[in-house]
Design a protein around this nucleic acid. Structure first.
Lengths: 168, 168
DNA sequence: CCAATACCATACGCCGGCGTATGTTATAGT
DNA sequence: ACTATAACATACGCCGGCGTATGGTATTGG
């Protein structure tokens, strides 16, 4: 329900009906609605045992090779509406914003390390990782019309070229 | 209320109280709540008579000079929570998504034109504009902790350098 | 001057969702 | 076999928000 309609539609009774139980049962597992909501960010964060991070660690080759691997991996993944839902929530809830920011930082750190591995100094690497990562965020957040995998792959190549043309 | 809490908190009675009128009065101006909501995207779009576009047109100099002008302008602007609210809304509402996408396209087109003016072919210019613009989106959407103007200005310079280093 | 219209208030019925109090069943430990 | 506890169901009271019906006031054109 969070994914499809946003936090404000995560409500006890509709949720119970969807699970084919009664709300009496809900209040056995959660103290109240707020208790459920506060448990969601952690639940989400745990589900983000980043396949990306795992994927980059199993990839051999240079830093740029790994970057290419990441980009292809992400391009093939179908866009994660869960991420978007959390981000939408985070806009109005500082606690959630902090949780999301933590994940963002972790992901950016991965990319930053790769740029450092490609020879950039920490500052430049950090900024280039921001540029890299924010592009992902922008693509996800603004995706009102779906884009084909081919299109995404092509853009990924373009991005890699642009962000690493001065390296090697 | 949209800005501060999101669409789902745009409700008739709280709204009426905030305006120190009764809801009877509300239903004179709007058919119902949905009528109000559907009027909001257009209202927002109209408020986006882009100061940025206006600003770039009054700036003299080369394409890159104009880019610099844009970046400085945006860096000094305080982050627009209205934009974020619309974006959060758009995630769950295709109609709103279309409205926001229209604004996004318009803004990107401005940047794209500048990159073309700097000598890039349409495709490269389009992609680089995406990279440029999505960075803005990412910075706004992920801003849980505020950043100083100086920091933003420095990042703007960094961005300009990175995205135009091969031009001139 | 008065009636039409714009604008707002009052008052009501309704429903969805919250939380609680209390029952019911199944399972496991002793 | 008995009880404790986990997991669910039933049933209620409450409130916030929606929409409607109706009444009031003020301004304005004829």
């Amino acid at each position: 329900m969070l994914r499809e309609c946003g936090v404000d539609h995560v409500k006890v009774e509709p949720l119970a009906e969807r699970l084919a139980v009664t709300k009496g049962s809900f209040y056995w597992h959660f103290k109240n609605r707020n208790d459920l909501l506060r448990s969601l960010p952690e639940f989400w964060a745990r589900s983000q045992t980043d396949p990306v991070v795992a994927h980059v660690e199993t990839t051999a080759g240079s830093a740029i090779d790994k970057m290419r691997a990441i980009l292809e991996f992400i391009a093939r993944e179908d866009p994660d509406r869960y991420d978007n839902a959390m981000r939408a929530w985070a806009i109005f809830d500082p606690e959630v914003a902090a949780a999301v920011a933590q994940i963002d930082d972790r992901r950016m750190a991965t990319v930053r390390a790769l740029f450092e591995g490609a020879g950039l100094n920490p500052d430049d690497a950090a900024f280039r990782a921001r540029l890299w990562y924010f592009y992902d965020v922008g693509e996800h957040v603004t995706r009102d019309t779906p884009v084909s995998v081919e299109e995404r792959l092509e853009r990924a190549q373009h991005r890699l070229k642009l962000l690493t043309s001065d390296l090697d």
